[in-house]
Design a protein around this nucleic acid. Sequence first.
DNA 1: GATGAATGAGCCTTCATTCAT
DNA 2: AATGAATGAAGGCTCATTCAT
Lengths: 211, 211, 211, 211
Amino acid sequence: MRQPRTTRTRNAEDSKERILRAATKLFAKSGFDGARVDEIAKAAKINKQLIYHHFGNKDKLFTAVLEQAYRSIREQEAALDLSGLHADEAVLSLVEFTWKYYLANPDFIRLLNSENQLEARHLKGSPNTRSINKSHMVLMESLIARGKKEKRIRPDLEPMQLSINISALGFFYLMNRHTLSTVFERDLTSPRHLAKRLEGMKDLISRWIRP
Amino acid sequence: MRQPRTTRTRNAEDSKERILRAATKLFAKSGFDGARVDEIAKAAKINKQLIYHHFGNKDKLFTAVLEQAYRSIREQEAALDLSGLHADEAVLSLVEFTWKYYLANPDFIRLLNSENQLEARHLKGSPNTRSINKSHMVLMESLIARGKKEKRIRPDLEPMQLSINISALGFFYLMNRHTLSTVFERDLTSPRHLAKRLEGMKDLISRWIRP
Amino acid sequence: MRQPRTTRTRNAEDSKERILRAATKLFAKSGFDGARVDEIAKAAKINKQLIYHHFGNKDKLFTAVLEQAYRSIREQEAALDLSGLHADEAVLSLVEFTWKYYLANPDFIRLLNSENQLEARHLKGSPNTRSINKSHMVLMESLIARGKKEKRIRPDLEPMQLSINISALGFFYLMNRHTLSTVFERDLTSPRHLAKRLEGMKDLISRWIRP
Amino acid sequence: MRQPRTTRTRNAEDSKERILRAATKLFAKSGFDGARVDEIAKAAKINKQLIYHHFGNKDKLFTAVLEQAYRSIREQEAALDLSGLHADEAVLSLVEFTWKYYLANPDFIRLLNSENQLEARHLKGSPNTRSINKSHMVLMESLIARGKKEKRIRPDLEPMQLSINISALGFFYLMNRHTLSTVFERDLTSPRHLAKRLEGMKDLISRWIRP
DNA sequence: GATGAATGAGCCTTCATTCAT
DNA sequence: AATGAATGAAGGCTCATTCAT
């Protein structure tokens, strides 16, 4: 006979979410190596052992954080309504979305940065990642296909290169803003510089994708 | 002609260099947090305490490594002979140089990556960095000035944006090659893909800088 | 009647006590700087990290040790029954108690000695110390007040000076016994010398406090 | 054939003295364990190895410091002219001298304190100490002898007890001033408290030594 | 006599993880 | 599900001392 559970139980789902939120913040702040399991537990206001209970270990926790981060950006991206736009305009719209997403979610860049330093060892073990990014690939391909038909996108454009370039220009700028600000002796994150950067990127991409 | 050094007392210069070389390798491999002073000492085949004797602490050692890394790329860049080329060709030549430098010196990307994760805290405390990057800034400016005179570079191009874009496209691709390879399910570092990427970047930059 | 403790989860209280006991011994033996956290852990038969888990760091551990030491002597002092004695006799009784406490608890002297070398930096950060010593101050004051009424203690005697002199004569003798034994070429800790010292101190104090 | 020494030689005696001065200061400040050979070398503005060259090791250096400290107080004490005073007055004069010496040379107390914590291990190995303290013993004995003849000092007073008590009252007060100030919640080192303490000690000793 | 380079051992502290309840 | 206690293995850094010149 199963013993009647006392109502003390705190809701596992809630705990997991709290852990995930705290872990995201701290992995983003300090990187995988720099973040401390203790800190995450404290920030999540749960017992440290619960992390191990729910996620197994630090690596698996990081993997979960990464997957969630990817899922989030891809979901928002998929929710964009680009149907009223010409393909080239849609691409520029995507440049803007991506840039703004990075700005609104600085954690995303830092998480990816850390993962890359680790040579994607978590992502490589995650079978979910590909399916998560599937929608993104489909989007790239369909935009290019549409653009070709519309004759507003050059026929030799490749989905992967497009995707990478859209990310690269904004990602690099934001990720390296600290070293760049030091080298160039100005604050790259001022509103003026940010606005200018977005314009510059759109200009660049637009010249590049035209037939 | 420089005087031949008498075999200096247990050769401090040599030790420092060995430490620096080992530190570069290991900081690049594991990042600042991930690298271990013990490992660096072992790799440099010197006693751990010697690192502290010569460099003070792990942070100062990392700063020295970073400065040397910047000095190296800037020296090679400054050594390029771009005088026989039109300004736009020179820019493309620079794209190629930068890309090839990244490929030949994968440590550079990883070091910068780690430093950015730390919000450039070492660079910010290093007064040498700016002077080291001075030549680069001068180069950007002079190329643009020349290009405008030659009417081969659009008049509204800014040195910093040019510099950043030249770096961004290659840097992002290489730095994120592990996550991207996973997401796009192909090996981005195959010779074929690398060659294609260089062509793509030159094409993109060339379309962007033209008047 | 206290409730019997259910065998508490791996008994934290017991661990803390074991640590405290070992720390007292080793801090007394080697002083704050000389004592090793490793040794303390080993002597307490617990894992070193547990010290940090329970006490935070070496300084906080030393503070805890000091507080306990003060608490111990003050508790025993407070337990003395001096009510049947005249005030001057009570003071002499206190001289004897103090001396015997020092002899029975050589750690106490050595701990205070170390703390004084550190300019009381632990005590200064401990808000408990004053309350712990409160009972002692009250005792001094009440004895003097009583003695004045009884006309067996001179009216100009001050509590602090009384307290200090009672401690000083025994404390100095015992603390410096090693250097003094060397200088005076005899063993100050032989039973004969100890007995003589106690008599001498009582004589000295008794002459001093009489009206 | 010996090579002619260049005049570069810096005067060994001067170096030794500089080392000794720096060592006294730092051993007093931090105790034997707490003081660092590096710091001493730096404070003495000489090369660290020179300390080993001149003194052998840290322990021997500490021994030298201790011996010098004893020599200094005994020399000044021996230089006192007590001939014009009655023996009891001379003793009080000695109480005052000792107190003032402690105040003017706080290092002395701290050095002895550290040495006592180490159970006089340096002094025990130093054959010089006894001869250095010889004059002090002689002084004690002669004062008591004189006092007895003069009938101004009680006949049962012992030289060692006299010596110890003269030291103890001032030494304890000053050495423990940090802990005492905390416990008694007042500044024991204020001029007023210091003056009062001296008077108190003279009063106490004077009552004690009278026949 | 004097110096800077070099070292082995060890110190305090921290970390991810597991145990016992 | 949830918790606090407990641990083995480092990790950065320091210390007294010695080497080589």
